[in-house]
Protein backbone atom coordinates (compact mmCIF):
# COMPACT_ATOMS: atom_id res chain seq x y z
CA UNK A 1 0.00 0.00 0.00
CA UNK A 2 1.13 3.51 -0.80
CA UNK A 3 2.16 5.72 2.08
CA UNK A 4 -0.69 8.07 2.88
CA UNK A 5 -0.31 11.73 2.00
CA UNK A 6 -3.18 12.73 4.25
CA UNK A 7 -3.96 11.11 7.54
CA UNK A 8 -6.98 11.93 9.69
CA UNK A 9 -6.75 10.54 13.18
CA UNK A 10 -9.85 10.45 15.38
CA UNK A 11 -11.18 13.90 14.43
CA UNK A 12 -13.81 15.34 16.74
CA UNK A 13 -15.58 18.57 15.82
CA UNK A 14 -17.95 20.24 18.24
CA UNK A 15 -20.41 23.10 18.19
CA UNK A 16 -21.36 24.91 21.37
CA UNK A 17 -24.92 24.06 22.34
CA UNK A 18 -27.32 25.13 25.03
CA UNK A 19 -26.79 21.89 26.91
CA UNK A 20 -23.06 21.48 26.47
CA UNK A 21 -21.08 20.97 23.27
CA UNK A 22 -22.75 19.24 20.32
CA UNK A 23 -20.63 16.72 18.48
CA UNK A 24 -20.88 16.93 14.71
CA UNK A 25 -17.88 14.71 14.00
CA UNK A 26 -17.34 11.81 16.35
CA UNK A 27 -13.89 10.31 15.81
CA UNK A 28 -13.29 10.25 12.05
CA UNK A 29 -10.13 8.48 10.84
CA UNK A 30 -9.20 8.27 7.18
CA UNK A 31 -6.10 8.16 5.06
CA UNK A 32 -5.51 9.13 1.48
CA UNK A 33 -2.51 8.41 -0.75
CA UNK A 34 -1.11 10.51 -3.60
CA UNK A 35 -2.82 9.67 -6.88
CA UNK A 36 -5.81 8.17 -5.13
CA UNK A 37 -9.46 9.22 -5.31
CA UNK A 38 -11.31 8.58 -2.06
CA UNK A 39 -15.06 9.04 -2.07
CA UNK A 40 -16.76 10.26 1.07
CA UNK A 41 -20.47 9.51 0.87
CA UNK A 42 -23.42 9.86 3.17
CA UNK A 43 -26.69 11.72 3.48
CA UNK A 44 -27.01 15.33 4.55
CA UNK A 45 -26.02 15.82 8.17
CA UNK A 46 -23.59 12.90 8.21
CA UNK A 47 -20.59 15.21 8.57
CA UNK A 48 -19.02 14.88 5.11
CA UNK A 49 -18.58 18.59 4.46
CA UNK A 50 -17.43 19.22 8.04
CA UNK A 51 -14.71 16.63 7.49
CA UNK A 52 -13.61 18.44 4.32
CA UNK A 53 -13.62 21.81 6.08
CA UNK A 54 -11.65 20.39 9.03
CA UNK A 55 -8.92 19.18 6.67
CA UNK A 56 -8.65 22.57 4.96
CA UNK A 57 -8.77 24.52 8.22
CA UNK A 58 -11.98 26.14 7.00
CA UNK A 59 -14.30 25.19 9.85
CA UNK A 60 -16.66 28.06 10.47
CA UNK A 61 -16.63 29.25 14.05
CA UNK A 62 -18.12 28.38 16.46
CA UNK A 63 -17.42 24.88 15.09
CA UNK A 64 -14.09 23.73 16.46
CA UNK A 65 -11.75 20.78 16.09
CA UNK A 66 -11.53 19.62 19.70
CA UNK A 67 -9.71 16.31 19.36
CA UNK A 68 -7.68 14.42 16.81
CA UNK A 69 -4.96 15.17 14.30
CA UNK A 70 -4.79 16.09 10.61
CA UNK A 71 -1.43 15.04 9.16
CA UNK A 72 -0.53 16.24 5.66
CA UNK A 73 2.71 14.63 4.52
CA UNK A 74 3.65 14.41 8.20
CA UNK A 75 2.82 18.06 8.84
CA UNK A 76 0.27 18.53 11.63
CA UNK A 77 -2.22 20.89 9.94
CA UNK A 78 -4.38 21.22 13.04
CA UNK A 79 -1.56 23.05 14.83
CA UNK A 80 -0.70 25.51 12.04
CA UNK A 81 -1.32 29.23 12.45
CA UNK A 82 -4.02 30.68 10.13
CA UNK A 83 -1.35 32.45 8.06
CA UNK A 84 0.71 29.34 7.42
CA UNK A 85 -2.47 27.44 6.67
CA UNK A 86 -3.52 30.05 4.09
CA UNK A 87 -0.19 29.78 2.27
CA UNK A 88 -0.49 26.01 2.23
CA UNK A 89 -4.08 26.15 0.97
CA UNK A 90 -3.07 28.19 -2.01
CA UNK A 91 -0.09 26.09 -2.94
CA UNK A 92 -0.58 22.50 -1.84
CA UNK A 93 -4.19 22.10 -0.82
CA UNK A 94 -7.07 23.07 -3.07
CA UNK A 95 -10.81 23.12 -2.66
CA UNK A 96 -13.69 22.82 -5.11
CA UNK A 97 -17.16 23.64 -3.87
CA UNK A 98 -20.65 22.81 -5.00
CA UNK A 99 -21.72 26.31 -5.80
CA UNK A 100 -19.21 27.69 -8.29
CA UNK A 101 -21.24 30.88 -8.67
CA UNK A 102 -20.70 31.72 -4.99
CA UNK A 103 -17.07 30.59 -4.91
CA UNK A 104 -15.89 32.78 -7.80
CA UNK A 105 -15.41 36.51 -7.36
CA UNK A 106 -18.19 38.19 -9.38
CA UNK A 107 -16.19 41.41 -9.77
CA UNK A 108 -13.12 39.81 -11.32
CA UNK A 109 -12.71 38.36 -14.77
CA UNK A 110 -11.69 34.74 -15.06
CA UNK A 111 -8.28 35.88 -16.28
CA UNK A 112 -7.68 38.24 -13.36
CA UNK A 113 -8.57 35.54 -10.87
CA UNK A 114 -6.30 32.95 -12.45
CA UNK A 115 -3.39 35.31 -13.06
CA UNK A 116 -3.62 36.76 -9.55
CA UNK A 117 -3.64 33.27 -8.02
CA UNK A 118 -0.68 32.15 -10.11
CA UNK A 119 1.42 35.25 -9.43
CA UNK A 120 0.66 35.27 -5.71
CA UNK A 121 2.39 31.94 -5.33
CA UNK A 122 4.82 31.64 -8.25
CA UNK A 123 7.53 33.96 -9.59
CA UNK A 124 5.91 34.59 -12.98
CA UNK A 125 5.77 37.67 -15.20
CA UNK A 126 2.26 38.83 -16.21
CA UNK A 127 2.75 37.42 -19.69
CA UNK A 128 3.97 34.07 -18.37
CA UNK A 129 1.09 33.90 -15.91
CA UNK A 130 -1.35 34.62 -18.72
CA UNK A 131 0.08 31.85 -20.80
CA UNK A 132 -0.14 29.47 -17.86
CA UNK A 133 -3.74 30.53 -17.20
CA UNK A 134 -4.78 29.69 -20.77
CA UNK A 135 -3.04 26.35 -20.48
CA UNK A 136 -4.85 25.51 -17.24
CA UNK A 137 -8.24 26.47 -18.64
CA UNK A 138 -7.66 24.29 -21.68
CA UNK A 139 -6.67 21.40 -19.41
CA UNK A 140 -9.88 21.74 -17.46
CA UNK A 141 -11.82 21.41 -20.70
CA UNK A 142 -12.79 25.05 -21.13
CA UNK A 143 -13.49 25.86 -24.76
CA UNK A 144 -11.92 29.02 -26.25
CA UNK A 145 -9.76 29.62 -23.16
CA UNK A 146 -8.19 32.81 -24.53
CA UNK A 147 -11.58 34.53 -24.76
CA UNK A 148 -12.78 33.24 -21.39
CA UNK A 149 -10.02 35.21 -19.67
CA UNK A 150 -11.91 38.43 -20.40
CA UNK A 151 -15.26 37.12 -19.18
CA UNK A 152 -16.88 37.52 -15.78
CA UNK A 153 -18.37 34.54 -13.90
CA UNK A 154 -21.96 35.65 -14.64
CA UNK A 155 -21.28 35.39 -18.36
CA UNK A 156 -20.49 31.68 -18.06
CA UNK A 157 -22.86 28.74 -17.89
CA UNK A 158 -22.95 26.58 -14.75
CA UNK A 159 -20.84 23.86 -16.32
CA UNK A 160 -18.20 26.31 -17.51
CA UNK A 161 -18.07 27.99 -14.11
CA UNK A 162 -17.41 24.65 -12.46
CA UNK A 163 -14.60 24.01 -14.94
CA UNK A 164 -13.11 27.45 -14.25
CA UNK A 165 -13.16 26.48 -10.56
CA UNK A 166 -11.37 23.29 -11.50
CA UNK A 167 -8.74 25.26 -13.43
CA UNK A 168 -8.28 27.60 -10.46
CA UNK A 169 -7.95 24.67 -8.06
CA UNK A 170 -5.43 22.90 -10.29
CA UNK A 171 -3.55 26.08 -11.30
CA UNK A 172 -0.83 25.69 -8.68
CA UNK A 173 -0.50 21.93 -9.02
CA UNK A 174 -1.74 21.14 -5.53
CA UNK A 175 -1.04 17.79 -3.93
CA UNK A 176 -4.48 17.42 -2.39
CA UNK A 177 -7.89 18.49 -3.67
CA UNK A 178 -10.96 18.44 -1.48
CA UNK A 179 -13.95 18.46 -3.83
CA UNK A 180 -17.20 19.02 -1.94
CA UNK A 181 -20.18 17.98 -4.09
CA UNK A 182 -18.50 19.30 -7.26
CA UNK A 183 -21.19 17.94 -9.59
CA UNK A 184 -24.35 18.35 -7.55
CA UNK A 185 -25.40 21.59 -9.22
CA UNK A 186 -24.64 20.26 -12.71
CA UNK A 187 -26.77 18.42 -15.24
CA UNK A 188 -25.90 14.81 -15.96
CA UNK A 189 -24.43 15.65 -19.34
CA UNK A 190 -21.84 17.88 -17.65
CA UNK A 191 -21.17 15.80 -14.54
CA UNK A 192 -19.27 13.15 -16.44
CA UNK A 193 -16.68 15.63 -17.66
CA UNK A 194 -15.95 17.21 -14.29
CA UNK A 195 -15.50 13.75 -12.78
CA UNK A 196 -13.20 12.78 -15.62
CA UNK A 197 -10.97 15.81 -15.02
CA UNK A 198 -10.69 15.01 -11.32
CA UNK A 199 -9.75 11.43 -12.16
CA UNK A 200 -7.15 12.64 -14.65
CA UNK A 201 -5.64 14.97 -12.06
CA UNK A 202 -5.21 11.98 -9.76
CA UNK A 203 -3.94 9.56 -12.38
CA UNK A 204 -1.69 11.81 -14.43
CA UNK A 205 -0.49 14.35 -11.87
CA UNK A 206 -0.59 12.21 -8.75
CA UNK A 207 -2.97 14.51 -6.92
CA UNK A 208 -4.80 13.04 -3.95
CA UNK A 209 -8.53 13.70 -4.32
CA UNK A 210 -11.13 13.58 -1.57
CA UNK A 211 -14.46 13.51 -3.41
CA UNK A 212 -17.37 14.36 -1.14
CA UNK A 213 -20.76 13.48 -2.57
CA UNK A 214 -24.21 12.26 -1.66
CA UNK A 215 -24.53 10.73 -5.11
CA UNK A 216 -23.47 7.09 -5.16
CA UNK A 217 -23.51 7.06 -8.96
CA UNK A 218 -20.89 9.81 -9.11
CA UNK A 219 -18.54 8.17 -6.63
CA UNK A 220 -19.05 4.70 -8.12
CA UNK A 221 -17.28 5.64 -11.32
CA UNK A 222 -14.71 8.05 -9.93
CA UNK A 223 -13.28 6.52 -6.79
CA UNK A 224 -10.67 3.95 -5.90
CA UNK A 225 -11.90 3.67 -2.35
CA UNK A 226 -15.10 4.67 -0.61
CA UNK A 227 -15.84 5.79 2.91
CA UNK A 228 -19.47 5.85 4.04
CA UNK A 229 -20.42 8.25 6.84
CA UNK A 230 -23.39 8.15 9.16
CA UNK A 231 -24.08 10.51 12.07
CA UNK A 232 -20.54 11.89 12.34
CA UNK A 233 -18.69 8.60 11.93
CA UNK A 234 -17.20 6.51 9.17
CA UNK A 235 -19.24 3.30 9.23
CA UNK A 236 -17.64 1.52 6.30
CA UNK A 237 -14.47 2.05 4.28
CA UNK A 238 -12.93 -0.11 1.58
CA UNK A 239 -12.25 -0.56 -2.13
CA UNK A 240 -15.07 1.10 -4.11
CA UNK A 241 -16.05 -2.11 -5.82
CA UNK A 242 -16.26 -4.08 -2.59
CA UNK A 243 -18.29 -1.40 -0.80
CA UNK A 244 -20.75 -1.04 -3.69
CA UNK A 245 -21.11 -4.70 -4.60
CA UNK A 246 -20.76 -6.36 -1.24
CA UNK A 247 -21.65 -3.75 1.34
CA UNK A 248 -21.07 -5.05 4.85
CA UNK A 249 -22.75 -2.31 6.89
CA UNK A 250 -26.56 -2.48 6.89
CA UNK A 251 -26.68 1.29 6.26
CA UNK A 252 -24.48 1.04 3.17
CA UNK A 253 -26.55 -1.88 1.92
CA UNK A 254 -29.78 0.06 2.49
CA UNK A 255 -28.41 3.17 0.82
CA UNK A 256 -27.37 1.26 -2.29
CA UNK A 257 -30.71 -0.56 -2.48
CA UNK A 258 -32.54 2.78 -2.24
CA UNK A 259 -30.92 4.24 -5.35
CA UNK A 260 -33.02 3.91 -8.48
CA UNK A 261 -30.78 2.56 -11.19
CA UNK A 262 -31.10 2.69 -14.95
CA UNK A 263 -30.58 -1.03 -15.32
CA UNK A 264 -32.93 -2.02 -12.63
CA UNK A 265 -36.43 -3.34 -13.04
CA UNK A 266 -37.59 -3.68 -9.44
CA UNK A 267 -41.22 -2.81 -8.92
CA UNK A 268 -40.42 -1.08 -5.61
CA UNK A 269 -37.38 0.64 -4.22
CA UNK A 270 -35.99 -0.69 -0.99
CA UNK A 271 -36.22 1.91 1.73
CA UNK A 272 -34.60 2.63 5.04
CA UNK A 273 -37.27 3.67 7.54
CA UNK A 274 -36.91 7.06 9.23
CA UNK A 275 -34.18 9.59 8.54
CA UNK A 276 -30.73 10.46 9.84
CA UNK A 277 -30.86 11.89 13.39
CA UNK A 278 -29.70 15.48 13.95
CA UNK A 279 -26.44 16.15 15.81
CA UNK A 280 -27.20 16.17 19.51
CA UNK A 281 -29.97 13.60 19.04
CA UNK A 282 -27.70 10.72 18.12
CA UNK A 283 -28.93 7.55 19.80
CA UNK A 284 -26.69 5.67 22.23
CA UNK A 285 -24.76 2.67 20.99
CA UNK A 286 -24.62 2.39 17.20
CA UNK A 287 -26.28 5.56 15.87
CA UNK A 288 -27.96 3.55 13.12
CA UNK A 289 -29.71 1.03 15.36
CA UNK A 290 -33.20 2.64 15.39
CA UNK A 291 -33.34 2.35 11.57
CA UNK A 292 -31.64 -1.03 11.36
CA UNK A 293 -33.64 -4.23 10.96
CA UNK A 294 -30.74 -6.33 12.21
CA UNK A 295 -30.18 -4.46 15.49
CA UNK A 296 -29.16 -6.55 18.50
CA UNK A 297 -29.26 -5.58 22.17
CA UNK A 298 -25.57 -4.86 21.98
CA UNK A 299 -26.15 -2.28 19.20
CA UNK A 300 -28.31 -0.23 21.55
CA UNK A 301 -25.60 -0.04 24.20
CA UNK A 302 -22.14 -0.18 22.68
CA UNK A 303 -20.83 1.83 19.77
CA UNK A 304 -18.93 -0.44 17.33
CA UNK A 305 -15.44 0.49 16.08
CA UNK A 306 -14.17 -0.06 12.53
CA UNK A 307 -13.01 -3.66 12.09
CA UNK A 308 -12.11 -5.77 9.08
CA UNK A 309 -15.10 -7.61 7.58
CA UNK A 310 -14.67 -9.12 4.14
CA UNK A 311 -12.80 -6.62 1.99
CA UNK A 312 -13.76 -3.50 3.89
CA UNK A 313 -13.49 -2.16 7.39
CA UNK A 314 -16.90 -1.86 8.99
CA UNK A 315 -18.26 -0.42 12.23
CA UNK A 316 -21.02 -2.91 12.94
CA UNK A 317 -21.62 -5.63 15.51
CA UNK A 318 -23.23 -7.91 12.97
CA UNK A 319 -22.07 -7.03 9.44
CA UNK A 320 -24.00 -8.24 6.43
CA UNK A 321 -22.21 -11.41 5.31
CA UNK A 322 -20.94 -11.49 1.74
CA UNK A 323 -22.48 -14.26 -0.36
CA UNK A 324 -20.42 -17.47 -0.12
CA UNK A 325 -17.76 -17.80 -2.78
CA UNK A 326 -17.93 -14.09 -3.64
CA UNK A 327 -14.73 -12.39 -4.71
CA UNK A 328 -13.96 -8.70 -4.70
Amino acid sequence: MRTPLLCLDQLVVELPGRRGPLRVLDGVSLDLAAGEVLGLVGESGAGKSITGAAILGLLEPPARLTEGRVLFDGLPLHTLAPDAMRRLRGRQLAAIFQDAAAALNPLQTVGDMLIETLRAHLPLSPAQARERAVERLAQAGVTAPGERLRQYPHELSGGLRQRVMLALALALEPRLIVADEPTTALDVSLQARVIEHLRDAARLQGVAVLLISHDLGVVAEACDRLAVMYAGRVVEIGPAEAVLHRPAHPYTAGLIAAVPDLQDTRPRLARIPGSMPQPGAWPAGCAFHPRCDRALDRCREESPELALAGWSRVACWQPVAPPPGARP
Binding site: S157, G159, L160, D187, V188, S189, L190, Q191, A192, R193, I195, E196, D215, L216, G217, V218, A220, E221, A240, E241, L244, H245, I256, V259, D261, L262, Q263
Partner: peptide, 23 residues
Protein backbone atom coordinates in the same frame (compact mmCIF):
# COMPACT_ATOMS: atom_id res chain seq x y z
CA UNK B 1 -26.78 10.94 -25.12
CA UNK B 2 -28.73 11.56 -21.92
CA UNK B 3 -29.03 7.84 -21.26
CA UNK B 4 -25.36 7.37 -22.05
CA UNK B 5 -24.34 10.16 -19.69
CA UNK B 6 -26.37 8.95 -16.71
CA UNK B 7 -24.29 7.66 -13.83
CA UNK B 8 -24.34 3.94 -13.29
CA UNK B 9 -24.13 2.27 -9.92
CA UNK B 10 -23.67 -1.16 -11.39
CA UNK B 11 -19.93 -0.66 -11.97
CA UNK B 12 -20.56 -2.56 -15.16
CA UNK B 13 -17.51 -0.94 -16.67
CA UNK B 14 -19.81 1.03 -18.95
CA UNK B 15 -18.08 4.33 -19.46
CA UNK B 16 -20.23 7.42 -19.23
CA UNK B 17 -20.33 9.20 -22.54
CA UNK B 18 -20.22 12.91 -21.89
CA UNK B 19 -22.55 15.00 -24.05
CA UNK B 20 -20.37 17.31 -26.15
CA UNK B 21 -20.80 21.03 -25.71
CA UNK B 22 -22.87 22.97 -23.21
CA UNK B 23 -26.58 23.60 -23.03
Amino acid sequence: LLLGAAPDLGLSGRARTPVPGDL
